[in-house]
Design a binder for these strands. Sequence first.
DNA 1: TATAAACTTAACCTACTGGTTAACTATTAT
DNA 2: ATAATAGTTAACCAGTAGGTTAAGTTTATA
Lengths: 111, 111
Amino acid sequence: MNTTYTEDVMDEIYFALSNQKRRGIIHDLSLMPSTVNSLATRHSLTLPAIHKHIRMLESAGLIMRRKSGRTNFVSLKNDSLMLAQNWLMQYHLDWSSPNASLDNYIAGMKE
Amino acid sequence: MNTTYTEDVMDEIYFALSNQKRRGIIHDLSLMPSTVNSLATRHSLTLPAIHKHIRMLESAGLIMRRKSGRTNFVSLKNDSLMLAQNWLMQYHLDWSSPNASLDNYIAGMKE
DNA sequence: TATAAACTTAACCTACTGGTTAACTATTAT
DNA sequence: ATAATAGTTAACCAGTAGGTTAAGTTTATA
C-alpha cells in the first residue's frame, strides 16, 4: 500500500490551514458560500492575493468553485477537512494522561 | 479579546503538521519518547535537519525536550494538538449534509 | 458598442523552508 | 588525557509563500 499520495495531500491540507486568512476564509465558507470578490473585501486582500489563497485551498481539496457567468462562487468541501481531522483524532486516545510518560522513559533509560 | 496570539500559534501548529517527516516524528513520539539521534536515524535525516524539525515542533508547542547528560529526550505535548483539533472540530457539525448548500445559494442569487 | 465588473495571469520582490556541509560545544567512555 | 558520542550552530543554496502592481480576459450593463 502506497501512502505517499495521501501524505502529499495531508501536507497540502495542513499547509493550507497554516495561514490565518485561509482559516478565516474557511470559517466564512462554513457559514455560507461566497464569491471571490466578497472574500477579498471581507479579508482586506487584493484580488490577486485572495486568488492565490483560493487556489491553494482548492488544490488541497478544502473548497470548490463553480463559475456562474463572470462570477465565481466558492464553497466548502468537507472531505479534506475530515482527512486532517482523522489524522489528529488518532492521537486523541490517551490525551487523558498527558506527559507522564517522559519521566518514566528517562528513568527507564538510566537503569 | 485579542485572538491574534492564538492565531499565530495556530499558524505554527498547522505549519508544523504540514510536513510528512514532522507528522512522522509526532507519530513516533505518540508511541514513546525518543532521542534526537534516534529520530534522525529512523527518519533518514541528518542531525542538523532533524534539529530544525524538532525546533519547529517545539516552538509550536507540539513537543517538549528534556536534557539528560548529553542526550536530549523528546516527547509529545498534547496541548497544541488539541488546539488544532478543536479548531477543526467546529466544522464537524454539519458534515452530514455535504455540499448541497452551494446550488441553493447560487439559485438564490439568480432570482 | 463602449464601459464596467469580476476575475485571472504575469512579473517582481522579500522572507522563509528544508536540506546540505563544516565547524563547534558539551558530555561520556577508554 | 584522548577520543568518541550527542547535539548545536553557522553559512550556504534552490525553491516557494504571500504579497505587490500592471496588464489581460470574459461576461454583463448602459
